[in-house]
Structure formats: structure tokens, C-alpha cells
């Protein structure tokens, strides 16, 4: 195992986060604060409780997931797309580093960044409302699992994209709508039966539901199913990444 290479890429990627502090950290924190003002205070004041939890507290896991998903995907996709775009990918391909090590380094760095931002979102939320986490270890487990899974998904997008426009395409057109429709700001029990069943096709529903369970012990879907669906998506992403390196898709000619 080329640990030095993993370490070098990890440090390099984390340095970019420091360099782009404004868009990496300030922006997600600010948007979380705005969500709390708009949804928590303005709208939340008209909704008393959801499943026995105040509306402000209810949306916290959804907000963290929203940030976690978008940040995991954007960090990982940009991390691998940028060397492809500027041409420095030659150095990765010509170095004595295996596909597994490349994935560990890039996905690890992206996941670390998004976990940090997830926890920062939680800390921002704690400024506005009182939060008690019922299952903190499960909360961390969901945080880790989701960030790794969606960083892998972002890595796949970063390899697939051949323009900055395409890099934004899936996050903007698919991931953000799925997150908003995945129960970030409401319980899917609030929906009419037909739309509730339609919502179950959305994989993000399972992530948010499981994550919310770790906070308050309440979930729209059985936590075991949530965990299984997340692991299934993780396995799917791993399979695609393995195929990319086996075939050299968009990496080698």
C-alpha cells in the first residue's frame, strides 16, 4: 500500500479547502442559518410539532443531510475532475499508486471535508435550537456512511464529466431535487398515500429517515431498511468505480 501517496493527495485536497474557505465553509454555514430563519422561524412558527419534535429541531437532520450530500458530491467530483481538466492527471496515472489507493485518497478527502461541514451545520443549528441526539454513535455512522457513499458517487461524476457544465448537471438536476423531495423539511407521512408511495422510490428518503432516527428515535421508514438502502447504494458506487479503473474509462486511452 502506497500510504505516502494517499497522505500526499489527502493533504493536497484538504489544502484546497483551506484555500477556498469562503465557498467551502462560509457558504454552507450561511445557507444553513438562512434555512433556519426561513423554515425554522418564519414557517416553523406556524407548524407546532412533527412526531413530537419541534419543527425547528425536526429539520436539522434533513439540513445536515442536504449539506452532506451536496458537499460530498461537489468535493469529490471537483477533486478528480480538476486534474483531468488541467492535465495533471498524468502524474496520478504515472505514479506507483493503485486504483484503490487513488479512491481512498480522493474519496477520503472529500468525505472528511463533508463530515466536517456536516458537523459544522449541526453546530450552526445548535445556535438556533436545543438539540438532543438520542443515538450519537449511529448519527456518526450515518454521517460517515452517507459522506463516503456520495463522495464515491461524486468521484464517478468527476470521471464521467467532460465539462464543468456536466459536472454540475447531476447535482443540480437530480441530487438537489431528490434531497428537497426526500423529507428534509417534512415527514413523508404528511403526504397523501399516493405521493408517499412515489417518494419511496427516492433513495434520499432512506438516508434522511435513518439519520433523523439517530437524532430523535423517529423515522418514516424502518431504520434497518434505511441502512440497507444506503449500503446498497454504496455497493453500486463501488462497483462503478471498480469498472472505471478496470476499463480505464475516461482516464486512459
Amino acid at each position: 500500500m502506497n500510504f505516502q501517496a494517499i497522505r500526499a493527495i489527502w493533504i493536497y485536497e484538504m489544502a484546497r479547502m483551506r484555500r477556498t474557505m469562503l465557498q467551502s465553509i462560509v457558504s454552507p454555514v450561511l445557507s444553513t442559518a438562512l434555512y433556519f430563519v426561513v423554515f425554522g422561524s418564519a414557517i416553523g412558527s406556524r407548524i407546532s410539532h412533527v412526531g413530537g419534535v419541534s419543527y425547528g429541531a425536526f429539520i436539522v437532520p434533513g439540513l445536515i443531510m442536504l449539506n452532506l450530500l451536496t458537499q460530498s458530491i461537489s468535493n469529490a467530483s471537483f477533486g478528480i475532475y480538476f486534474p483531468r481538466f488541467v492535465g495533471t492527471i498524468y502524474e496520478i496515472l504515472s505514479a506507483p499508486i493503485s486504483a484503490v489507493e487513488i479512491v481512498i485518497a480522493y474519496v477520503g478527502a472529500a468525505a472528511a471535508k463533508s463530515i466536517f461541514l456536516g458537523l459544522l451545520t449541526l453546530a450552526t443549528a445548535a445556535v438556533f435550537i436545543n438539540i438532543n441526539i438520542l443515538h450519537p454513535l449511529w448519527m456518526l455512522a450515518f454521517l460517515l456512511l452517507t459522506s463516503v457513499t456520495f463522495s464515491l458517487f461524486g468521484f464517478v461524476i468527476g470521471i464521467w464529466a467532460d465539462s464543468f457544465e456536466k459536472l454540475q448537471l447531476i447535482p443540480l438536476l437530480i441530487v438537489t431535487p431528490l434531497t428537497f423531495l426526500g423529507g428534509s423539511f417534512y415527514s413523508i407521512d404528511m403526504l397523501p398515500p399516493f405521493w408517499r408511495n412515489v417518494t419511496l422510490i427516492n433513495p434520499v428518503v432512506y438516508l434522511i429517515s435513518g439519520f433523523r432516527w439517530s437524532f430523535y428515535g423517529l423515522s418514516d421508514i424502518n431504520v434497518g431498511i434505511s441502512l440497507s438502502m444506503t449500503l446498497l447504494f454504496l455497493a453500486l458506487c463501488l462497483g462503478i468505480v471498480a469498472w472505471i479503473f478496470k476499463t480505464g474509462y475516461r482516464l486512459k486511452t
Partner: peptide
């Protein structure tokens, strides 16, 4: 930082 990354990629200690 650029040359440091290159060295690390090839498995060499800093």
C-alpha cells in the same frame, strides 16, 4: 506544495 505532492505520489517520504 506542488512538488511535495509529486514526491508523495511516488511513495517517497517527505
Amino acid at each position: 506544495a506542488t512538488v511535495k505532492l509529486s514526491r508523495g505520489l511516488f511513495g517517497k517520504k517527505p
